[in-house]
Nucleic acid binder design. Structure first.
Lengths: 302, 302
DNA sequence: CTATGTATTTATTGTGCGAAAAAAACATTA
DNA sequence: TAATGTTTTTTTCGCACAATAAATACATAG
């Protein structure tokens, strides 16, 4: 994990809001309300604003606060803040190495500490995360064990079967709440990608957008357990997807499916929506597993 | 958490096996195989064996190892090891205090450290657990927030709705594997409690036995995601159950339901079993929620 | 009187060392 | 030669203190 203070993260997030059009050039960046919004104190927000000012995204007038500069959306002003969340994360390296059989099944913290030259807190944090995702376990005494889930090709199918059990069911929850704002937001996002961004965007980003859509929809069920289960399983799925062959063409089908789902939800017909969701998932499964098989066979052949 | 070394835990676990009839009086306690079994080294196993010998549960012959003494099952030989896992656990205290509105929604680690006079590692560990169960969150800056899930009466119903989505589905997994040993074991346990132990056992124990049954059955599905989701949701449910009124009569219905389910699984009819599971859960829900309502009303009346 | 700017306090992380627990290596006995 | 007993090594925990980050309190300007 690259050193990153809360102020840095906030700078990114605020810039994200500007890029996404939620905050317009010329608008005042009220420190207090931003702090409340992000549930932090003004201190890190102020740091973020200073960073943004230094990058030319905001201008500062003494005793009058910060304002989004008119050039904020020009070309690559402050682009160094845009994406560089560097994915050299220990988490990914560890997952990669485990799947690739580079590390033994049983390891000690010490071993990981040395192998990755990482800080202890980072190693422990990563292991805890892996435990949550179900691919690592603490041994009763010293040491940790990695479980084979992530490395098996069946995992893909199992995830999809699990999702098929919960996602359509979630739409039928009596507490389902039909939040127009969420639907609008998601429709906007999916549409934007369908209008072209699919061809240029990084695979990883597209995967995340797709997962986010499902998570947001399931969240409307009003039953946290469905939502939490999906989020958890999606984190693992993310790892699996990163290792599989990525098919952009499939994303078109997927995202237009999402728009159709929104349409059905708007119609106020949860049963039909639930049914459609089931289909939508089934499609993904069949295509996915054949891709996965091809992938595995290629590997064996080599 | 009361100081407890791995050796102490093993002593309990081994005694559990003796009490449960898995290891008989007179049998040799092979250190190596016990160590392998528990996935630890011989060191803590040896400590456990010493403890057991000191309590009169095992006898020790120099250079010949340990043997379960014939009096191991007599009366209260070594009973001090049986149950006393003291539930003064920070985890329970914290959950209790949060539900009872004794602590604020937002807290710092420091606050918890002082309030509970606990070690830092313990506090952090507990918070991580709470996060996994979905009733706590790290704030972006310093501090943690507790979420209302555990304290809402709706949580009960939501958990049951979630389980109704996953448990019957799990039984229909194509990878479902019908492990006679597991079924036998569970049948034995459920039968034993139906034969009388229900009236004497602690509520907490009965709750755990019931949860364990479901977890074991779902595990047979061969799809970890179902199993993991259930385990996770059950941990939270445990908290909820501890706070609700306990009805022993209900346990009879519940446990005989379990036996019926085993019978259907033995018949090799997963569809019927799945259907029965759905019903079984529905029953529990309806009874449960009415109890829960009564409970809430009582509280309000006071 | 509200938002900004600044100073102060508080919370948390990082580090290093000694203690305790567990694993691994070695020696010995049936 | 496999299991037991014993010693050595390794791993992890616990604690204190310094360093940093964030929250809070205070002062001031519009």
């Amino acid at each position: 994990m690259v050193e990153q203070t809360l102020g840095d993260k906030l700078a990114r997030d605020i810039l994200g809001r500007i890029r996404g059009g939620q905050i317009l050039p010329g608008a005042k960046l009220n420190a207090k309300s931003l702090a409340d919004d992000f549930r932090v104190s003004r201190t890190p927000v102020l740091e973020a604003l200073k960073t943004l000012a230094a990058r030319g995204i905001a201008t500062h007038a003494p005793n009058r606060g910060y304002i989004v500069s008119s050039t904020a959306l020009n070309g690559n002003v402050g682009s160094e803040l845009d994406e560089p969340v560097p994915v050299t994360d220990l988490y990914y390296r560890l997952a990669e190495d485990w799947v690739g059989q580079e590390i033994p099944q049983d390891v000690t913290e010490q071993y990981l500490l040395q192998r990755y030259k990482a800080r202890k807190s980072e190693v422990v944090g990563t292991l805890v995360r892996a435990v949550n995702e179900g691919w690592a376990e603490r041994k009763p005494g010293y040491g940790w064990t990695f479980l084979p889930v992530v490395s098996t090709p069946e995992a893909f199918e199992q995830v999809y079967r699990f999702r098929s059990a919960i996602e359509p069911a979630a739409l039928l929850e009596p507490t389902f709440e039909f939040d127009t704002q969420v639907l609008d937001e998601q429709e906007r996002i999916q549409q934007r990608y369908l209008d072209g961004a699919i061809d240029t965007e990084l695979p990883d980003r597209l995967i995340l957008i797709g997962m986010q859509f499902h998570e947001e929809i399931i969240r409307l069920s009003g039953n946290t357990f469905f939502h939490q289960a999906l989020v958890r399983v999606n984190r693992l799925r993310h790892l699996l997807e990163l290792r599989s062959i990525f098919d952009r063409a499939r994303v078109y089908d997927q995202f237009s499916g999402h728009l159709e789902l929104i349409r059905l939800l708007r119609k106020g017909d949860p049963i039909e929506a639930s049914f459609y969701m089931r289909q939508h998932l089934a499609e993904a499964t069949s295509k996915k597993t054949s891709i996965q098989r091809a992938h595995v066979q290629n590997k064996i052949r080599r």
